[in-house]
């Protein structure tokens, strides 16, 4: 379990495609993607298994422990 730290330097831990990431508390999904270097159009996103549309990322605040998955197009049959 992550220990919550209140105040301006509070951080929250989330996972992105299974890897642990520390974010400022209250960070949005759009901020996370920018931190990771993903262009907004380059990936599709889900949080805790639910699709989050591109135009909702700015207002989608990540809770501590959120599981984010980013997908891209690949070849397929």
């Amino acid at each position: 379990m992550n220990q919550r730290i209140d105040g301006p330097h509070a951080r929250s831990a989330v996972t992105v495609n299974g890897d642990l990431h520390q974010l400022p508390a209250g960070a949005s999904l759009a901020q996370l993607l920018a931190t990771l270097g993903h262009a907004p159009q380059a990936v599709a996103t889900a949080v805790d298994g639910e699709f989050v549309a591109r135009n909702s990322r700015d207002t989608f605040v990540l809770r501590p422990g959120a599981k984010i998955t980013c997908f891209q197009a690949i070849v397929g049959g």
């Binding site: 270097g37 990936v43 998955t69 997908f71 891209q72 690949i74 070849v75 397929g76 049959g77």
Partner: peptide, 15 residues
Amino acid sequence: VTLGLKRQLAAGAAD
């Protein structure tokens, strides 16, 4: 043509 989707491992990961 058909395509798939996959979890991205790194920004700008090449295909």
